[in-house]
Design a protein around this nucleic acid. Structure first.
Lengths: 144, 144
DNA sequence: ATTTTTGCTTGGCTACATCAACCATCTAGG
DNA sequence: CCTAGATGGTTGATGTAGCCAAGCAAAAAT
């Protein structure tokens, strides 16, 4: 049977992961609210933010970690919003998604609002933010 | 026009919120993977984890921050999985959701797996975890 | 040149999310 | 009391997003 220390560590891990999930959930909700103000769903917003440069739909699917078939409909809706346009790639199989002028403006506005209305900026002092950044980087180090 | 310091702070905030969103996204994905192994969707898992004690469907909707009508179908599916049962409340309008024995076992297993397979436990040293806990608490302090 | 792989689309199915409308019940005011 | 309003849950319509399997066109590989 495991010694007490292990059990304590497990409880600690449990607590920490619970809190991280809470923060993640709140961040997600905040993000959803902000992007909704600009008429986008969270996934659409992630796509727009990713489209700094034109990108193959395949690559976008990779970034979003979803099935490629999913991106078809996503692109349809973004195209219908006038935010994105499909342009043919050199390889004639691939379709690139590219922000329209409207889309680029939207992307800039989006980035600003997300940064400003983040829970983070409000609740932490500057040194705390720095410490958090370091820790978050460790969490993001390498793929999971 | 804003002085340089403001611009720098904005960029810093931008960066930090971007990283937080990345961590949130990864936490979400991890969570989805873990709970999928137990045959649950993320929302279903959140519900099960919340149902420590019997709870009115309304209250669950509050916790999940979604429309009440949503919980109807959610409860249907959880009931069909044999994880939850509807029991009448004292107020004859309310229906309480209560974990079945199977549901309680599932909940325990769920909590363990989520804690163990969390990115957090793997990548941080103990003091780092403590520092992170402090910062996360500040982020969770008070409603947003 | 034929086969295999790759990129996008389609169609079918499920889960969530919202909103509006509905019924039963509880609560308050007259 | 008894009606009027608020509250809890359900239903139906609609939209987004997720997966899978199947299809087609173009590239790559054999």
């Amino acid at each position: 049977m495991p010694p007490r220390a292990t059990k304590a560590t497990l409880t600690e891990a449990h607590d920490l992961s619970r809190r991280l999930l809470q923060v993640a959930e709140r961040a997600r909700a905040d993000f959803a609210d902000v992007v909704a103000e600009l008429g986008l769903t969270p996934v659409q917003a992630r796509a727009v933010l990713w489209l700094d440069q034109p990108s193959a739909m395949r690559a976008l699917a990779g970034h979003l970690a979803c099935d490629a078939s999913n991106v078809t409909g996503l692109a349809d809706r973004l195209e219908q919003l006038g935010v994105v346009e499909r342009v043919p790639g050199e390889d004639r199989r691939v379709t690139l998604l590219q922000l329209t002028r409207k889309g680029a403006a939207l992307r800039a506005e989006l980035a600003d609002r997300v940064a400003q209305r983040s829970t983070v900026t409000a609740r932490l002092t500057s040194p705390e933010r720095q410490r958090l950044a370091v820790l978050l980087d460790k969490l993001l180090d390498q793929p999971g």
